[in-house]
Design a protein around this nucleic acid. Structure first.
Length: 97
DNA sequence: CCCATGACTAGAC
DNA sequence: GGTCTAGCCATGG
């Protein structure tokens, strides 16, 4: 993907506050042309050792996306106060912006 | 070039 | 609420 688009995606990601979450679609909508799939790809391709809050990105249905790091993602969100309901969904008022 | 593959989504049942 | 489907579009074979 275009480096400029990736940069937009990661810049927005870096602005998601602790204790809040956002969705692939919302990030995509804030960029100049990215789609949810591209946002997902950008996260998947993040280099090891980065400090971006990749775990604050969830799906439009407020569930964790289907990927290998979902368990760690849930732990890290809970660790900063994001609670899940009995069906595994994040409360709507945790969404950013 | 064609085809399959996704950390997805909106809409239809 | 859940499941399916078509759309999505860069990427790699």
């Amino acid at each position: 993907m275009k480096p400029e688009l990736r940069e937009q995606i990661l810049t927005i990601l870096a602005e998601v506050p602790a204790g809040r979450v956002t969705t692939y679609g919302r990030i995509a909508a804030m960029t100049d042309g990215a789609t949810p799939r591209l946002v997902a790809r950008a996260l998947r391709e993040l280099p090891a050792g980065h400090d971006l809050p990749w775990f604050r990105v969830i799906t439009a249905s407020r569930r964790l996306a289907d990927h290998g790091g979902a368990d760690e993602q849930r732990r890290r969100l809970v660790a900063e106060g994001v609670l899940f309901d009995t069906r595994g969904r994040v409360a709507a008022d945790r969404l950013w912006p």
